[in-house]
Design a protein around this nucleic acid. Sequence first.
DNA 1: GTCATTAGTTGACTTTATCAACTATTTTAC
DNA 2: GTAAAATAGTTGATAAAGTCAACTAATGAC
Lengths: 147, 147
Amino acid sequence: MPSPDIAELRAFNRFYTNHLGWLDRTILTGSLSLTEARVLFELHQHQPCTARDLLRILQLDKGYLSRTLDSFERRRFIQRKSSTADARYLLITLRPRGSTEFKKINKASEDQMRALLEGLTPAARKSLVRHTKAIIQLLQHHRYEQD
Amino acid sequence: MPSPDIAELRAFNRFYTNHLGWLDRTILTGSLSLTEARVLFELHQHQPCTARDLLRILQLDKGYLSRTLDSFERRRFIQRKSSTADARYLLITLRPRGSTEFKKINKASEDQMRALLEGLTPAARKSLVRHTKAIIQLLQHHRYEQD
DNA sequence: GTCATTAGTTGACTTTATCAACTATTTTAC
DNA sequence: GTAAAATAGTTGATAAAGTCAACTAATGAC
């Protein structure tokens, strides 16, 4: 195992954490925290889904997620109703306010990424996108779950 | 501006936040939080440096950093002494315990990345490293600072 | 039927982060 | 020189974020 490879990957992690990760953390221009934004995003992708699904994807504490969903329900972002097939599960669906909020943060995040990409030449942009795609391809079957 | 580019970059951000970012957060197997680990890392890279330098790099709240450095001092990880040139500045240097701790978390992080890379074929590994390097190259002159 | 699992909730708590007001030192402008 | 503005760092109060363990309710295994 070439140790420069490890060093390079770690440099990338730091780079990402220090620069791009910071961007992520400021999406919350509105009322949502980063975690709430992540939950809302996955909810939008997977609804109707269960808390368990979200836990699998986002690796949160289940008590914490439960409270986050409570607050989403209070704000009328979502609706939870127990599954008829298995009453332990609550099926979560987005309500209009939740969709609106999703669109809002989605746009904010999009604008941020657009601003970043606009700082690059078209060639650099194309290249960047190619590299990110390739990395996802290479790593997507590696999931580091705790369960 | 092609909108698929934006979508792709955002997909990468999510991928990173959900998968690799999680790794980062578990380095702290020892006694350090992620933020403490980042501070210690940059300290190791830049010492002797000032709190201001760390703030620029890591984008933390200055009160928070001040307390973090207090705790480092209590644990004898660092030493702070005011600059003779400008007494407002405190020059921070690592002490033996700080270096030891750095080596510890550095090794933990390295082991983690090694484990990840070992899951790949040598070709995939080489390719991954090439892509991460390229991304850093493309983006390194884009700093998103608040100041 | 009862014992073990699983989904989700709740209470108590710790850690992490933020904000604003503050001290001390240095710089700027006059 | 000195007053005002700026800068480095500290502190107190507080909020937000995350964790842990004990709990309820429903289901599945035997």
